[in-house]
Amino acid sequence: MAINPNETVLKVEDLRISFKAYGGMVQAVRGVSFDLKRGETVAIVGESGSGKSVSIKAIMGILAPNAVIESGRIEYDGMDLTKVSEEDFHKIRGNRIGLIFQDPLSALNPIMKIGKQITEVLHLSKKISSEEAKHRALELMHAVGIPEAERRFNQYPFQFSGGMRQRIVIAIALAGDPEILICDEPTTALDVTVQAKILELINKIKEERHLSVIFITHDLGVVANMADRVNVMYAGKIVESGTSEEIFFEPAHPYTWALLSSMPDLQTKERLLAIPGTPPNMIYPPAGDAFAARNKYAMKIDFEKEPPSFKLSDTHYASTWLLHPKAPKVDLPDVLRARIERMKGAK
């Protein structure tokens, strides 16, 4: 497959999704736009409730029944995925877009042999004989690093450890030979040493199969490991987007600052900069900048008017009034500046 690195494979434009709930509509996603280029990994970072998982579910066509896509487009291969029928989605899901879930145990059928679970997907995607399907399944299991694939082919999910289960989920996601892989917090439920192995595996298969990856996580360490570009989400919006370097070394949005400085790394000694308060209630999203109420650098306008997305470089955008020419000059918090210096200095 020839790779054009600048070819956009997936484009999300001004996506707005709400949920019907007791007490009103929860505005989970409020105008999200991003794109995915061929062969790259785009990370979406945010806390629970920031709308990152909901956006991904919309791409996969697996939104909960009480969700409403209010506006926006998801462009993929000349289609608008927000308008594709459930039947057509069957052909896209698994075959062209693969998904890896957070919890490998609930993603697998507990009473079906794992070999069967992989071959089932193979049969769904193409007309092949069962020997060929088994052969391909064993290949896949080998590719995702499951030892003794022949023996394990006939085992049940409970006979596997968490890491191995996640490998099976990855094998199933790869079975339809997709071109986009969506990972929804695939390592959150795993131990760090297992997490490291799974991340390595995802990076490896991404290279081998020229996949484009959307990676959802709240762990900035994982983002640094995986992502070419990063979108930071807060309260249903992307507040900052840029390349990994731009986000980690030249963050512009106060929320990104707060995220970066709120977690200790192995060298941290100073007091952490905690983000005070709690995320807003998305039934009544605040006027202006949603982060304003928790933002030490909030200005009057932050409570009145939503900030536009200011361009900082061709790849770097941030939605904060601090970038307005009339805004007072605010320096990075000392803790963060020191940390960035230290990070740049690391070999």
């Binding site: 760090v192 040493t193 997490q195 490291a196 991340l199 762990d219 900035l220 360490g221 994982v222 983002v223 640094a224 490991n225 992502a227 990994s244 370097e245 980690f248 970066l260 977690m263 790394d265 192995l266 990070m343 740049k344 690391a346």
Partner: peptide
């Protein structure tokens, strides 16, 4: 195995 928030 610990991922650090540092792309470099």
């Amino acid at each position: 195995a610990i991922p650090e928030p540092n792309p470099i």
